[in-house]
Structure formats: structure tokens, C-alpha cells
Amino acid sequence: MLEAARQILRYRSLLWNLTVREIKARYRGSALGFLWSLANPLLLLAVYSLVFGFIFQQRIEGASPYPLFLICGLFPWIWISTSILEGTMSLIANAGLIRKSAFPAELLPVVSVLSNLVHFLLALPILAAALLVGRFLLGSDVGGLSFLLLPVVVVLQLPMIAGIALGLSALNVHFKDVRDLTINAMTLLFFLSPILYLLSALPEKLQLLIHLNPFTPFVLAYQEVLFHGMVPGPVRWLAMIGVSILLWALGASLFERLRDTLVEAA
């Protein structure tokens, strides 16, 4: 797992170029450009707000206004899940590159994570605007200076997402089933994360299950720093650090194990 980290640091300028290329290529030749990256999050936000906020009239203490609560968990989740899905496919998608040149393959899943992080960052003004409207025009008690901790949470989560993407991308080269497994696992984990609902609104046994989801501490932290306007407690920080290190170590060492066989199987 150290070897993968060393490679990534050594090729950081190539990593940067790859990420820039990825972002440029995605919007080249489209009239609305990066606005498209906002379309899906906003659509999901609208649908979930409509279904849970207005049709089911969900009124939970500590989660209103509901659309604002939703956006604070949903936007980070979209970064997480698209990073992992794209990262899983990244080695197959760039098979030409790793088969035909001496290319550090570990960069590719990380590029997926970083380019999707850029999309997340580009969507932040919408999130910020929504919170400002809620706080100052609607007079809700949302947000606060704690948003300054957002970069810390993001940086803490990077190793976790990169590790998962690395491990799954290497496995996916050998077994195409991994892609379908990942898609379904991410859907399941979305509903097992307290994004659509407040964790405290669940029965205790169910809460335990939600806590087993490694993404849960991060989702809660995003909601705390963005929506609740509070600084996460020490347990939360420890959970995030622990989960992130553990999943990086697992993913990166799996990648290194499969490293020698990637090129011929891709």
C-alpha cells in the first residue's frame, strides 16, 4: 500500500495532467459544458425532495427544511459513488494506455476520484447558495462557520475512496462481474447511509446496521459541518480516520498484489 502511494506521489504532475485531460475531454464539444454535471444532482434533489418532503410530508426535527438537509448529504454522496464506479472501470477503459506504454496504472482510478471531486467542488456554489437562502431569507437555523471544516472532511475521505477505487479497478480487470456488483452495492449503501433520513429517527437495531456502513461517519460529518453548523465530535473524527486508513490499506494492497498481472489481462 506504500508502493501505490509512492507511485502516485512520484507521478503527481502526470496525475494532474490526466485529471485535466479527463475534465476537458468530458465537456469538449458540448454546448452546456460543465452545467451538465449539475443536472443529475439537481434532478435527484428535486425528486427526493418532492417524494419525501412533500408527498410523504416527512417532518423530522433536525432535518428541515428537508431539501437543504438532503442536499448536504446527497452532493458528497454523488462524488463518492461516481468516483468509485468510474474508478472501477478506469483500467478497462484505458486498457490501450497500460498495454501500449509503460504507464503507472495506479494513477487511473485516482484520476476518476479527482475529476469527480472537481465536479463536486463546482457544484458547491449551488449548495452554498441554497444554505444562504435558507439561513437569511427563510430564517432557518442551518449552516454556520463550521463549513470551513469541509476541506478537512474531503481530504480525510480521499484515501478511502481512492483505496476502494484502486482495489476494485484491479479486480475488475480479471472479473467483469465486479462492475455489476459495485453498481448494486453502491445503490444498497446509499439507502444504508443516513442521507434521505435522520439517523436518530430509526429504531436502534437499524441504527446499528447503518453504523456498520463505512460511509456513514463521512455522511454524518458532511451534514454536521454543512447543515447543522456544528463541529463533529472526536468519535466522528476517529471513525473517519480509522475507516479511511483501513480501506486505503485494503484497496491499495489488493491493487499491488494484482499489479503484475494487470497489463496482460486488461
Binding site: 485531460r21 476537458k24 475531454a25 469538449r28 464539444g29 484505458n94 490501450g96 494506455l97 498495454r99 501500449k100 506504454s101 509503460a102 504507464f103
Partner: peptide
Amino acid sequence: AALIELGAGFHPEI
């Protein structure tokens, strides 16, 4: 430098 497949890694869109 290996010239195995020239332009491997060119991205068509850019």
C-alpha cells in the same frame, strides 16, 4: 522510450 503503438493514450476529444 518504447514506440509500440504510436499515439497510444491520445485522447480523441482534445
